[in-house]
């Protein structure tokens, strides 16, 4: 029992190596987008946006793995299931809101500024 506990604790806390790896990766993935935007961005605006978004997406995964110690096996898979469920809801809600509101805005009666 106690050996099992110490084992699972060690699992939960990660190690010095995982924290430092996660930290260095996070620093890199923060410096890249900030550097890109603060230096005025690439000539291609869409490429800048894509790179900034990619860095954020990768950094979120890095945090999940190295700081939150997410594994598909933690809590017999329940953390992963709840995470996936949240992501599904999140994607439906975010994309749905933006999509609906974009179409509502474009279908509004044109208004002049002084109305």
């Amino acid at each position: 029992m106690s050996t099992h506990e110490t084992h699972s604790h060690a699992d939960d806390h990660g190690s010095m190596k995982t924290y430092v790896t996660g930290f260095l990766l996070s620093v890199l993935l923060t410096v890249i987008p900030f550097g890109l935007v603060m230096s005025g961005g690439l000539p291609n605006r869409d490429l800048t946006i894509a790179l900034v978004l990619a860095a954020a997406a990768i950094q979120i995964v890095v945090h999940m793995i190295y700081f939150l110690h997410m594994r598909s096996s933690s809590e017999e898979g329940w953390t992963m299931i709840t995470l996936l469920f949240t992501i599904v809801i999140l994607v439906i809600m975010l994309s749905g809101s933006v999509w609906v509101m974009y179409h509502m805005n474009t279908n509004m009666m044109p208004m002049t500024g002084d109305m």
Binding site: H13, S15, V20, F23, F34, M38
Partner: peptide, 27 residues
């Protein structure tokens, strides 16, 4: 002011790793 935001991001990232070190000491 992006410089301020970068500083803020650094603060939060540092606090994350120092909390991690605290957890290692706790273990």
């Amino acid at each position: 002011d992006l410089e301020l935001v970068a500083l803020n991001t650094a603060m939060l990232l540092f606090s994350s790793i120092t909390y991690g070190f605290a957890m290692l000491e706790m273990a």
